[in-house]
């Protein structure tokens, strides 16, 4: 029972603050209307041309999944692993090609014909850019993309035109949330041509203090510069988070230690665990690791972040479960995985 996506697979991640880095490139085939305006015949043409190419040409090889042929729960699992978007999951013309190492996924017929994305653990934006870029090179050797001398790569939405590139990082920022610095910080980000949003938010709260920060401007700035800008800002935020965390620990070490170990107690004992409770408690463990109060491999926490999601939970375990059964299964998975790594840490 494992995840496919490289940012979580195998528990390789080691940064408690920067969970993952992603680079996405939007591309469209010359001579075919964008997905929003194309016929279903044209949609099939995009699928057959690009999917075939990826399956044949790519060095690691790609596996292609067609949305129309996948059960809903498996599509949901791909969304939860961040390999596809929620929009793609609901498109009958849609497909995704995923590299065997789980680092690259190419969404087909989402808002644009192609959305090439590379997703890696930790702060690894340069590597993500190189990975996405080499996939783009590979496709570009055989395909003609819609390109304009001034505007650059043409996309269905003018917000993506130019490089077609969206670089983003997923950050865990509990100390900035608790010290109420987060609002100010996220507002300031706009001045650097970046935008921020809370992830895993449902209804009234941003669960687990996870935020995504990405570039807003895609045209008039080269890819390497987008990466450099974002990386510089993320490093600042990371330093801020660390500073606030240290301040918190210095002021109330026992209280925070108590919180972290209570979370560990619950996660290693709970018999029924719903996903929002799991997210909040896992965030507490991550905070504990970040503050140096708890010794646990960060990779396991990233992996559990995905394994507790309802779609992945059912797909990986190959069962259809109702809500209560899911909560029971979730408790079992978290408990088992944590006890296993804690046992290893002790030895």
């Amino acid at each position: 029972m494992d995840c496919r996506a490289k940012w979580v697979a195998g528990g390789e991640a080691s940064d408690p603050i920067v969970i993952s880095s992603r680079v996405r490139l939007a591309r469209n085939l010359k001579g075919i209307p964008f997905p929003g305006a194309m016929s279903s015949k044209e949609g099939s043409e995009v699928l057959s041309r690009v999917a075939k190419l990826l399956e044949q040409k790519a060095p690691h090889g790609y596996e292609v999944f067609y949305m129309a042929k996948m059960p809903q729960v498996e599509r949901l699992a791909l969304v939860e692993e961040h390999l596809i978007s929620y929009d793609l999951a609901n498109k009958t013309e849609g497909a995704v090609a995923i590299s065997r190492d789980g680092a690259t996924s190419v969404m087909l017929n989402e808002e644009d014909h192609l959305r090439i994305q590379a997703l890696l653990p930790g702060l690894s934006l340069e590597e993500a850019w190189q990975t996405a870029n080499s996939c783009d090179d590979l496709l570009e050797a055989e395909l003609d993309f819609a390109f304009h001398e001034d505007y650059g790569y043409l996309t269905a939405c003018p917000t993506n035109v130019g490089t077609g590139m969206r670089a983003s990082v997923m950050l865990h920022l509990p100390a900035l949330v608790e010290s109420r610095q987060i609002g100010r910080l996220l507002a300031a980000i706009g001045q650097f041509g970046l935008m921020a949003r809370g992830l895993y938010g449902e209804g009234t709260e941003a669960k687990g203090s996870v935020f995504q920060i990405s570039n807003q401007v895609t045209c008039g700035i080269a890819e390497e510069e987008i990466v450099r800008n974002l990386k510089a800002v993320v490093e600042q935020i990371k330093a801020q988070e660390q500073a606030h965390l240290q301040k918190m620990v210095a002021a109330q070490r026992l209280k925070i230690e108590d919180r972290v170990y209570r979370a560990l107690g619950l996660l290693t004992n709970a018999r029924v665990l719903d996903s929002s409770e799991a997210m909040v408690l896992l965030s507490e463990l991550r905070l504990g690791v970040s503050a140096g109060l708890l010794s646990l491999p960060v990779g396991v926490l990233s992996e559990l972040l995905v394994l507790v999601q309802p779609g992945v939970l059912q797909t990986v375990n190959k069962v259809n479960l109702d809500a209560l059964e899911r909560d029971i299964k979730r408790g079992e998975i978290v408990r088992r995985r944590l006890l296993e790594v804690l046992g290893r840490e002790k030895q």
Partner: peptide, 10 residues
């Protein structure tokens, strides 16, 4: 949206 809408880069 972009400031200068003249493509730089790849």
């Amino acid at each position: 949206i972009h400031g200068t809408p003249t493509h730089q880069g790849k």
